[in-house]
């Protein structure tokens, strides 16, 4: 089935996956307290994402995209419902357990890169590996170099974030997200703070990750990036307005 969507122009195909579910959201509600009032942000969201999917979450500002990402990363907790990511029910984990869980299971890419300014790019990538300690020490350095090469920053390993461009910082941030080889990559507006050429480089990197079979969930306003996803979920007023699978279009 092929349809046209008024929000983005892309080709939409419903596909059923046989891969295991990596994200399971069941009847999730989220509201924030504003003084005495409760401001609902997400309403009754139920959603499953299979391993290897590349999901773009789209929608106008203030419609719950970032809140949804926060729930997926355990940064926030639902008021109702259940969030199960890669087999872990996040509702039941304490803050400390969530930190450990995130280090192993999720790689996060932020809009403003959020690299530590006093560490060079290589050390920024080593940092999550040091936190988690999954790999033996000598292998961490080799993997950090490998990831830098993957994102095309081998020559900038010893540079501080302040010494490289925004696009290079974001690529380093993606490498950092991949450091512990997480099952899930979550990106919040990864190209939102980049110029066109740098956004393209990051865009290519995400495509490469998609081709490698990584599970990607990304909030974006970038139409091209959204079109390259395998699935687009549109949020509107805190509800899933549409959830559609796309045929990859280059």
């Amino acid at each position: 089935m092929v349809e046209s969507n008024s929000f983005f122009h892309y080709t939409k195909i419903n596909i059923s996956f046989t891969m295991p579910d990596i994200i399971q959201l069941t009847n999730v509600h989220k509201a924030y307290k504003l003084g005495q009032l409760k401001q609902p942000v997400l309403h009754d969201i139920s959603l499953t994402v299979c391993a290897g999917e590349f999901v773009a979450i789209v929608g106008p500002s203030g419609n719950g995209k970032s809140t949804l990402l926060n729930l997926l990363t355990g940064i926030d907790r639902p008021c109702q419902g259940e969030v199960i990511i890669n087999g872990s029910a996040l509702n039941h984990l304490r803050e400390e357990q969530l930190s450990v869980w995130r280090g192993t299971n999720v790689g996060i890419v932020f809009q403003f890169f959020q690299l530590l300014p006093s560490l060079n790019l290589l050390q920024n990538i080593l940092l999550p590996m040091d936190f988690v300690g999954k790999l033996p020490k000598p292998e961490r350095l080799a993997r950090a170099h490998y990831l830098l090469k993957l994102v095309g920053l081998s020559g900038q390993a010893k540079q501080l974030p302040g010494q490289v461009s925004g696009g290079q910082q974001q690529r380093a941030a993606i490498a950092r997200a991949l450091a512990n080889d997480p099952a899930l990559i979550i990106a919040d507006e990864p190209t939102g703070n980049l110029d066109a050429s740098n956004a393209d480089a990051v865009f290519d990197l995400f495509l490469e990750l998609r081709n490698q079979g990584k599970t990607l969930v990304m909030v974006t306003h970038n139409e091209s990036l959204a079109q390259s996803a395998s699935r687009v979920i549109a949020l509107h007023a805190g509800r899933i307005h549409s959830d559609e699978y796309l045929l990859g279009v280059e």
Binding site: F112, Q114, L115, P117, S118, L119, Q123, L126, G162, Q163
Partner: peptide, 25 residues
């Protein structure tokens, strides 16, 4: 975002090269 107030001086680069680069993260 992070480091918005962080200006990379030659001293920081020197520190990174000579000391911090060899330390655990």
């Amino acid at each position: 975002g992070l480091g918005a107030d962080f200006v990379s001086h030659s001293f920081d680069r020197w520190l990174e090269r000579l000391v911090a680069g060899f330390l655990p993260t």
